[in-house]
Every structure is written in C-alpha cells, then in structure tokens.
Amino acid sequence: MSLFDKFLRIRELGIFSIIVVFVIVAAVIDPRFMTLDSWRAVFLAIPLILVMAMGQMMVIICRHVDISIGSILAFSAIVIGLLYIQFPGLSLWLSLLITASVGLVMGLINGFVVTRFNVHSIIVTLGTLSLYRGLVFIVSGGRQIDRNDIPEHVVSFSQTSFLFSIPGILIFSAIIVILTHLLMRHSVLGREIYATGSNPVAAHLKGINVTKVTLFCFGICGMLAGVAGLFYASRFGYVNPGVTGVGIEFIVIAGVIIGGTSITGGSGSVLGTFLGILLLGIINVALPVLNIPGEFQKAIYGLIIVVALALDQLIIYRMKKLSGGINA
C-alpha cells in the first residue's frame, strides 16, 4: 500500500473513530443520546445533505467547487411546491423527475460558464447562487409554500415506507449513494473523473474529454441538489424562499472535505464523504445533548473546513518534500 493510499484509509478510519469517540462521550454524558429518537433524528437529517454531498464530491474531485447548490435546492423545491398547489395528485416519481431535471439544467449552466469562459467555479457559482435565489423569489412571488399545500403522499415519503417503515428518503438516498459509489469506483467515466482531477494535462494527453467530464460533474451536482429540493419539501413540509437551503452549501462542503476529498482534486471516496456527513449529522444532534448551544454549530463546521484544508495542505507539502519535489 502506498503512502497516499494508507493516508486515505487512515482518514476514513480516523473519521470513523472520531464518530465512535464522540458517540461514546455523548452517551456517557447523557444517556438520552443513545435513544432511538435521537438516532432517528440523525438519520432523518442526513439524507438531504448526503445526496447533495455526492454531487459536490464529484465536482471537488474534478478540481472545482459549486457553492450555488443551496439556491438550486430552493428553486427546485419552490417549483415542485407550486406544481403541488396546481396538481396535488402529482406522483412521487414524476416529482423526482421534475426536480432532477430542474437541478440538472441549473448545474449544466454553472458547468457551461466555468468551462467555456475559464473563470474559477467559486466566482461563477457565487453569481449563480444569487441569480438562482432571485429566481426563487420571482417564481414564488415571495410566497411560502405551506404545509397544507404539500400532498400527504409527499410528506409521508420522509416518514415511512413499505420497507419496515424506514423513511422513503432514507432508502432513496441510500440508493443514490450506492449508485454514486458504483459510478465513481467502477465505471469508466468515474475513473476518468478521478483522472481529470488528478492530472488534467495527462488526462487530455490520454484522450479524455476534460470539458465533457467537468460538465457531467456540474450537471449531476445540480441534479442531486434538485432532488434534495423534493426531499426538503417532503421533510419540512414547507418551502420558504428566504430560508430554504440558505447556507446549506457550506455544510455540504464541510462534510465532503472532512470526508477526505482533496480540494486539489483527484481523490475522495463515497465512504469518506458518507462518514463526513454522518459526523456532521451526529454533531448536530449531539450539541443540545452535550449542553452546547445550537448556535455553535456553524462555527464548528467552519472550523472543521479550515482545519481540514490546512491539514490537507500540510500533508501535500510533506509528501512533496519527501519525494524531493520542493525545497523547504
């Protein structure tokens, strides 16, 4: 096993052990943390973030970042909410198809501007973050979609299902996670995404269409943010143009980065991302248990991002130094 490979394993193992320690400490301090209710809360909070994290992970692996996903989520949630007001009978499958398509288009727009005009993706998506959020207000007229606008079969999607009453969104997000894993780990395209992020010049020399690969990642990232919009409507039972999805991109990015996906591209795994998101979810539920005010959540997430970035950079620096690439 190479140094880097080891490091990745250590990273995944590391987060896993942090999770274990965290859970034990929380459980010792307050046994209420180990109740079914709090774990249910963890696993209900996760799917939304997890689904978005899969797309964001792909984008980061190919050396970009998409910070517009919160607005994409809100737009798709508003669109589907407005449709429910008109057509309360809209089936879940059709809703999925609609939200996914809405997100896909928005993601592709991001990808198009990034690849065509060669501007850093963070700046482009900072623009579309506002652009899409503005569209949310324009389309909705600023009006909130209320609980009674959302049909019962959509709400129950996040509460129960035919399978042991496990919430539908949990099952569905598990499927997306597994599909992403298969795509990234085992498909030709998935490996080309890693190759593109690892060394774009070499990828081009080997005949990989770097533009297409990048567009694909942005497209999927948008699509999954769109699907998350449906999850949001189902789980929270309302969509508010000014609240829904605001700031969620930073939670997603925090989870992806702490999960071992390198911001310099080329590395990252679905398992790591899952563990990263799980850790954030547990922290979220455990904070009140540990008597830490919920207000600290964002600061903790921010700290996690900065520490993970610094750690990654230190490791890259050390490894380059080991291989004689730079002079200290």
């Binding site: 880097f4 490996r191 890693y194 190759a195 690892s198 060394n199 070499a202 080329g266 590395s267």
Partner: peptide, 9 residues
C-alpha cells in the same frame, strides 16, 4: 522524461 501519471489512481 517526467512521467505523466495520475498519482491518485
């Protein structure tokens, strides 16, 4: 001369 490799793969 400098191998063009994908170090993560």
């Amino acid at each position: 001369q400098e191998p063009q490799s994908f170090s993560h793969l």
